[in-house]
Nucleic acid binder design. Structure first.
Length: 572
DNA sequence: GCCGTTTTCGGCCCGACTGTTTTCAGTCG
């Protein structure tokens, strides 16, 4: 699958064209094409073969031709020509905060600088002071930017950022003069990682609110503190911005600061078509404000229903909203139970009883114990006899629990050859079987796809756990043919998991969307190894929502009776 | 380079901030 390569090439073409002073709209077209191809789960080669490339938004005759060229020949002339002209390091300089295409182009053309480190050295040696537009402050600023860039400026996991944001938001709600507080930005859209935290505050007293913000006990460094905006770093280096807006603009500001950028651009285009103007202060006809106090009225002024933040990525949500076809997204309250968790029988930290109590406290009606299977000795995997004894314990516990049911299950390993780690008759006796890969993760696309597809075809496997194996920032997904997996899951009635573990979120949002579009049932599980980890369910639900998942798409949003009926069907 | 409820040509998102200027270019979100 060459989607990623092609998306990256279009992005690089955009960067290089921009640096060379090419038409800005053309640059934008390449960026859009890059995003569209990058978001695709279908193989772009299949679309090309079917002659359907130009059906994609932002893909016209010219980019379609380049895609076909790359698929057929393995190279793209446009890209190669530009790459011969612009050294890679010059493009990299553009990614330093404070350095854009103009500055990178200038220092390259006028001073021959072609790397980020070369840029820093030249500034420190005082070599760039004669260049137009580069005064001492600008140069100092670039130097700081290089330090930030080289430090890696990593994005932070949603699971880490969200609690920080909520704590700060809670503290800000207690500040005098504050009417409303909303953590906005990519965090509100529940992206799996976030770059920084944006806290939006409605108040008429900007300065006092900002002062209170930078004085919060969580604050370690104050980066800026003005009339309407404060910027700080908290423990761990995470940057938090606070913006104060008047209450009558709060809705427009919330919309604006939630993004995504691509979504906002589309909204502004719609505004223009309606002879309106949209900015962070409201919707305007001429100078006349038409909307702004709530997000609902901002969207309504553009002829749209309110769109849930998780969908705001310009991935078709605006068209769906216009057609009145937005999905009714699954909510945390819809979740009836957790179907993938561990106990002290394998590598968990709590007894089944403790896990059950924790699940009841969350308002669930059932859980399924899915300890590891025998070959995973390092995790204390269970064999047939242990599973039988575990079942006895579960049966005893179920006698004492009212209105709650513990299901007996297993996270069975998919072995290297695609067979399962437990005999069929043992699996047949379990309520729920979720299969997963813990070894041979680096196998070829062909092998690993056959392995997982074989597991979906197994009559006793109800779901595949963490289907791509990726761990955010640590491990790439398996080289699996995802389309083939989705087809197999759809054909066999096997659910695919959204593993809610904050480092996993696997399936991710784009994969989850493709699965649900193909009619595959999703199952959202925490894979908890201790009671407190059950709370990660919210991140799995957020990912399902980003994947356009509705309650009906989610296996464990079913009430117990219906769930058991569905599980039985696969067994039979 | 894309695209069509004013268009197959001529448009294409908006405002703030900063540092460099003397009216504005570049960068950012």
């Amino acid at each position: 699958m060459k989607n990623r390569e092609i998306a990256d090439m279009f992005e690089a073409i955009a960067d290089m064209l921009e640096l060379l002073g090419g038409n800005a709209f053309r640059v934008n077209s390449y960026r859009k094409a890059s995003r569209v191809i990058g978001d695709l789960t279908d193989d772009v080669a299949d679309l090309a073969e079917a002659g359907r490339l130009q059906k994609l938004p932002g893909i016209g005759a010219s980019t379609a031709k380049k895609i076909v060229e790359y698929i057929e020949t393995g190279t793209m002339e446009r890209y190669e020509k530009l790459a011969a002209e612009v050294p890679e390091g010059v493009i990299e300089m553009m990614h330093v905060p404070g350095v854009g295409p103009k500055t990178a182009g200038l220092v390259y053309k006028e001073a021959g600088i072609h790397s980020v480190t070369g840029l820093a050295e030249a500034i420190e040696a005082g070599q760039l002071t004669d260049l137009p537009g580069l005064g001492p402050k600008k140069l100092e600023n670039i130097l700081k930017g290089v330090a930030v860039y080289l430090a890696g400026q990593e994005r932070v996991l949603l699971g880490r950022a969200l609690p920080v944001a909520e704590e700060i938001a809670e503290a800000m709600r207690k500040v005098r003069g504050v009417r409303e507080v909303l953590p906005a930005g990519s965090l509100r859209r529940r992206r799996e990682t976030v770059g920084d935290i944006d806290i939006l505050v409605a108040s008429t007293e900007g300065k006092a609110v900002v002062e209170a913000f930078v004085g919060l006990r969580q604050v370690r460094d104050v980066l800026a503190a003005g009339e309407t905006k404060g910027s700080v770093r908290v423990e761990g280096g995470l940057q938090v911005d606070c913006r104060v807006v008047p209450p009558e603009c709060f809705g427009a500001a919330a919309q604006y600061f939630t993004g995504s950028k691509a979504h906002n651009v589309r909204l502004r285009e719609i505004a223009i078509a309606r002879k309106l103007k949209l900015n962070e202060y409201g919707v305007f006809r001429g100078d006349e404000p038409v909307a702004g106090e709530t997000e609902e009225e901002v969207y309504a002024a553009l002829g749209l229903p309110w769109i849930p933040p998780e969908l705001r990525e310009d991935r078709g949500e605006i068209e769906a909203a216009q057609a009145g076809e937005l999905p009714e997204l699954v909510e945390l309250d819809d979740i009836q139970g957790d179907l993938h968790l561990h106990s002290t029988w394998s590598d968990g930290g709590a007894s089944i009883e403790q896990m059950a109590e924790a699940c009841r406290a969350l308002g669930y009606h059932y859980l399924c114990v899915t300890d590891h299977s025998q070959s995973l000795t390092i995790a204390g995997g269970l064999g047939p006899e242990q599973l039988a004894r575990q079942r006895e314990e579960i049966d005893e516990l179920n006698k004492t629990l009212e209105g709650f049911r513990i299901l007996a299950g297993c996270e069975v390993d998919i072995l290297g050859d695609g067979s399962l780690d437990l005999p069929d008759d043992v699996l047949a006796g379990l309520d729920f079987v979720i299969a997963s890969i813990h070894t041979g993760m680096t196998q070829s696309t062909d092998r690993i796809t056959r392995r997982i597809v074989a597991a979906t075809e197994h009559p006793h496997v109800h779901a595949i756990a963490h289907p791509t194996g990726r761990i955010i920032g640590q491990r790439e997904p398996y080289a699996i043919d995802f389309e083939a997996l989705v087809r197999a899951a759809a054909d066999t009635g096997t659910a695919l998991e959204i593993n809610a573990y904050v480092e996993r979120l696997d399936l991710n949002a784009v994969h989850a969307r493709a699965a649900r579009d193909a009619g595959v049932r999703l199952v959202i599980n925490t894979d908890a190894h201790a009671p407190d980890q059950l709370a990660m369910m919210r991140f799995g639900v957020a990912t399902a929502r980003r994947g356009w998942g509705a309650k009906e798409d989610v296996l464990n949003a079913l009430p117990l009776k219906k769930l058991l009926a569905v599980l039985k069907r696969k067994h039979a």
